[in-house]
Amino acid sequence: MPSPRYWREMPQRYRLEASQCTECGKVSFPPRIVCGCGARDFKKTNVSETGTIVSYTTIRVAPDAFVIQAPYNIAIVEADNGVRITTQVVDCAPEELAIGKKVKFVFRKLYEEGHCGIINYGYKAVLV
């Protein structure tokens, strides 16, 4: 990944920064310029640190950059403030996952760009 693209997303990837529409109150992650309701005024907020698994899978055939991590778990998590996020769920076996289980977000390495490129960090989830 070219480093400007990585750098630009840091507030979301590192700190789960989101935007809340001042009109309808919906929290957008990542932040948007226009809300689904049409309004354009937002205030900065964050995705809750904990959430619930809405659906999950285990990726066994991975893109090249993720092959070393396979098999790895992916879930759609609904954070406590309603935001839905696709995230890896790590430090657990596939059998430990279930719809409705609680998770919390942690800071992890997502993948490395080969031996010489940048190291991509961001959020993942672990079971609580």
């Binding site: 070393i68 991590q69 890896q88 430090d91 942690v106 992890r108 390495k109 997502l110 960090y121």
Partner: peptide, 11 residues
């Protein structure tokens, strides 16, 4: 873990 290093541990 595969996704842990000095930076993630520090955080």
């Amino acid at each position: 873990g595969l996704d842990e290093d000095t930076i993630t541990i520090s955080v």
